[in-house]
């Protein structure tokens, strides 16, 4: 779909929660991929003036340059709720969202730094009492109190949902890729720092965080009583594992048997 084809919804206020990402190879801060896709989805829905960006966290110079990546997508300003790294950001975000009066909150499925548990949208939706949908591929239309969206299912399938507003939606790799960030607008854009209440995250203090270890590969363990069985299992070719073989049938009868299995599996639509 071309960007010009999308009808923009008037009078809808959209907020996108953005975070500082981490480049998977170099480890440098960047705009987080899923969050950028969420911003892209918001921009396909409303004009940049009706779109507000919200970030909760500390604002050091290199993190600032990563956050400016979102401004380079064509949005004038970004609100930064000043929170230390060990704070629980959910209460601050909740208070700010209540103030803003946004009816649709878009965010990436999970962050790329810290715990990255993907819990924030769920906690926000629960506390605000809003509806929540995850894994969105596309927002088809917004009318009044509800919107129609396409949810991405595994295996490339899509599901149409009708969601009541206000809503929190999460976006992952199935959504449209984010546009490039332009350098000039990113420099010119405004980062508004907002002081707020800080809630310490007490539970996370006892955690041990270490660089990810490679997970052990699962071994195929053959439980056999004798060496002969172990050898047979190791050297086994494809065996007839209780499969049903229909011989001497007419093509029609064979097709019926296949159709029955396909219906049982529910792959026929």
């Amino acid at each position: 779909m071309r960007r010009e084809d999308i009808k923009q919804v008037q009078g809808l206020k959209v907020a996108a929660l953005v975070s500082v990402g981490r480049h998977p190879v170099t480890g440098r801060p960047r705009r987080a991929d899923f969050d950028a896709r969420a911003v892209e989805m918001g921009l396909s829905l409303v004009a940049p003036e009706n779109m507000s960006l919200l970030h909760a966290g500390e604002c050091s110079p290199e993190r600032e340059s990563a956050l400016r990546g979102y401004l380079g997508m064509g949005i004038g300003a970004l609100d930064v709720l000043d929170q230390p790294p060990e704070a629980d950001i959910v209460p601050a975000l909740e208070a700010r969202l209540r103030e803003m009066g946004a009816r649709l909150v878009l965010c990436g499925a999970r962050g790329e730094m810290g715990e990255a548990s993907g819990l924030v949208p769920f906690l926000l939706a629960e506390r605000l009492g809003w509806s929540l949908v995850s894994g969105l591929a596309q927002i088809e239309s917004v009318d009044g109190d509800s919107m129609t969206v396409l949810q991405a299912l595994p295996r490339g399938q899509r599901r149409r949902l009708k969601v009541r507003l206000p809503a929190v939606v999460t976006v992952d790799a199935a959504a449209q890729a984010a546009r490039q960030s332009a350098y000039g607008p990113a420099r010119r854009g405004e980062l508004r720092r907002i002081e707020g209440e800080v809630t310490p995250d007490a539970a996370a203090r006892d955690w041990n965080t270490a660089p990810a270890k490679k997970r052990p590969k699962r071994l195929k363990i053959v439980k056999a009583a004798s060496a002969r069985d172990r050898f047979k299992a190791a050297a086994a070719k494809a065996e007839g594992g209780g499969g049903q073989v229909l011989t001497g049938l007419s093509p029609q009868a064979g097709a019926e048997a296949i159709l029955k299995l396909l219906r049982e599996e529910g792959v026929l639509r």
Partner: peptide, 13 residues
């Protein structure tokens, strides 16, 4: 469990 999009391991109770 994995944290930071698979880049770190978090051990907890």
């Amino acid at each position: 469990g994995r944290g930071a999009a698979g880049a770190s391991d978090i051990t907890r109770e």
